[in-house]
Design a binder for these strands. Structure first.
Length: 564
RNA sequence: GGCCCGUUCGUCUAGGGGUUAGGACGCUAGAUUUUCAUUCUAGUAACAGGGGUUCGAUUCCCCUACGGGCUACCA
């Protein structure tokens, strides 16, 4: 059998990381089995439609490297791939179900049903069961135990449907008349009264449930659109989906879907189901949801999202400095594991070893710390040049932190009119990346770790000044300048040679320190202070090499002036 | 409330009738270091509880507790 899977989001807003993971697992499964990955847009609820959401979803998947084989952009033999466009298809199946007595028309208004619900909840439990036994004369005996106990809750089900306004209770003429007159109605699935449904889930094994606990779901809405349930089953069948891989929140409606396949006569073509465990919030309760936005202190969306309604912007992993490969890797490990101790995987490797058997059953709390660590590892894996490209402006939104410059040129850091700002050529930029990357967790950390290569310090860390800039420091620094002068260090711009120069200056300064019998810290700390302004950054000699002789000396002189 | 799913270190997880219950993140300590990080080494820490089954259960079964999902003319 051809392996065909689909990711079927509804365009009600941005996709959150849980959705991306579902898409990822579908994708990995499809690729692993040399199958087809389909993207279907489930927009049967026009009220919840959010403009731009589709584009957002596709852009997100593209960023993640989850490639679609068939979909609204890609086309395919089984299109269209958007349910609103397929609208005409569904009605005939609803009719089929009515004709075979698997479904019925229901005329109850939402208000009526709401009233029933309120009423039922208002009553105490014992009152309620008494009422129920009387209420439906047809089945008064059977429903008392086991089946009809809804515990103070009204449900449109086998115990109540005969008390409501539908084609099961109304005379046929009446039903015809109402429909002809344009009375609004829905079509509901008619669950058998008391039947054990046994289902197979690839992750959970056998799941069974009795139809007595199920209510008659709406399949077709009064606005002429199918509900998710009908559209989903019909489309999966028509699109020859072989495996339905979706979140666990769908498990409760699996019985409906399974029955639908049976009722439509498609039982032998029914896909296999796999319900993925949910991603939970790091702390507190519940599954991660779109509404969590930025409230939890980390992004829940793959890429930044601006709500067209509220104008509110929610951060994305991309803009927060995650590499998409790291994001994917992190997601893959949430609920799945390879069974080995390896945990860094490229997409290709994931495809290679992914299997549904190794997906866990229980929900997993998302841990932002772990995500950070994985991103850190990915950053270290990149070559300096690769990283330079991603960080340096050729990326989608090249800004590196909040330096205020909006430069998207190839240079890191734009020069402005102040003498204190410099720009570095690509080559130097790559070198800078090499020096700071090991202390970067996110791409966006770059500026914070490297700004001093571009801007001379204008103020100096107070603590460090107090600790390191003492009586004779000024004189020592003047001597340091002389040592540097004499070190044959070429001024910046003369492209020549490599790491040797840092070493040269290192030896010279160390020799000088030894000769003068000074302490290392006595020289190095003020030197760093002069060059960086703070107790941070790569080795001083490496910094000097990048800065070049002139700039280094200039900064030392400036520090002497300011700190004297 | 009802129905369904689940439960191994704080978190993600491996494992599986007899193990020193393994790894990763985090945390702590030490080493490296001219700073901050990184890195390295070590340490910390778990089978939810109660019943069975069994020579033996963390592993299999049942119950309880806890967690999660669903319970719309939303997906």
């Amino acid at each position: 059998m051809n392996c065909r899977v689909r990711f079927a989001p509804s365009p009600t807003g941005p996709l959150h990381m849980g959705g991306v993971r579902t898409a990822l697992f579908n994708y990995l499964f499809a690729r692993h089995n040399k199958g087809t990955m389909i993207l279907r847009i489930e927009d049967t609820d026009q009220n919840r439609y959010v403009p731009g959401a589709e584009e957002y979803i596709m852009e997100s998947l593209a960023w993640c490297g989850i490639n679609i084989d068939e979909g609204i952009r890609e086309g395919g033999e089984y299109g269209p791939y958007k349910q609103s466009v397929r609208k005409e298809i569904y009605r005939q199946y609803a009719d089929l179900l009515i004709n075979s007595d698997w479904a019925y028309y229901a005329f109850d208004t939402p208000e009526e049903l709401e009233g029933k619900r309120q009423e039922a909840e208002g009553k105490s439990k014992d009152q309620e069961s008494g009422l129920k036994a009387q209420g439906s004369g047809l089945k008064a005996q059977g429903s008392g135990e086991g089946s009809g106990q809804k515990g103070g809750k009204f449900a449109y089900d086998s115990t109540y449907r005969m008390e409501l306004r539908n084609s099961l209770t109304l005379p046929e003429e009446e039903v015809k008349r109402m429909i002809a007159e344009g009375e609004p109605y829905v079509i509901r699935f008619k669950f058998p009264e008391n039947e054990e449904i046994v289902m197979q889930d690839l992750i959970r094994g056998e799941v069974r449930v009795n139809t007595a606990s199920l209510d008659d779901k709406v399949l077709f809405k009064s606005d002429g659109m199918p509900t998710y349930h009908l559209a989903n089953v019909v489309d999966d069948y028509l699109m020859k989906i072989s495996h339905v891989i979706r979140g666990e929140e769908w498990l409760p409606s699996l019985p409906l879907h399974v029955m639908l396949y049976k009722a439509l006569g498609w039982a032998s073509d029914m896909p296999q189901f796999a319900h993925l465990p949910l991603i939970l919030k790091p702390s507190g309760n519940g599954k991660l949801s779109k509404r969590d936005g930025d409230k939890l202190g980390f992004p829940v969306f793959p890429i930044e999202y601006k709500s067209p309604e509220t104008g509110e912007t929610s951060s994305g992993y991309r803009e927060s400095g995650y590499l998409s490969e790291a994001f994917i890797n992190m997601l893959a490990l949430l609920g799945w594991n390879p069974g080995t101790e390896q945990e860094i995987f490229s997409m290709d490797q994931l495809v290679e070893i992914f299997s549904l058997e190794r997906v866990g059953k229980s929900g997993s709390r998302f841990d932002p710390e772990k995500a950070k660590n994985i991103n850190h590892q990915y950053i270290q894996q990149k070559t300096d040049a690769e990283l330079f490209c991603v960080v340096g402006g050729s990326g989608d939104s090249g800004d590196l932190g909040d330096s205020g410059d909006s430069g998207d040129s190839d240079d890191l850091g734009d020069s402005d009119d102040l003498g204190n700002t410099r720009s570095l050529s690509g080559v130097e930029g790559v070198k800078v990346i090499g020096l700071v990357k090991e202390r970067m967790n996110f791409l966006t950390d770059f500026w914070d770790q490297a700004y001093f290569f571009f801007e001379a310090p204008e103020e100096y860390d107070a603590k460090m000044v107090k600790k390191g800039w003492k009586e004779g420091t000024k004189e020592r620094m003047i001597q340091v300048i002389q040592v540097i002068e004499g070190s044959g260090l070429k001024a910046q711009g003369s492209s020549e040679g490599s790491g040797l120069r840092a070493q040269v200056i290192e030896t010279n300064i160390k020799e000088w320190i030894a000769k003068e019998e000074l302490g290392m810290g006595m020289i190095m700390n003020p030197l760093r202070l002069a060059l960086v302004g703070a107790p941070k950054g790569p080795g001083v000699f490496d910094i000097i090499e990048v800065l070049g002789k002139e700039e280094t000396i200039r900064r030392i002189q400036q520090a002497i002036k300011i700190l004297a």
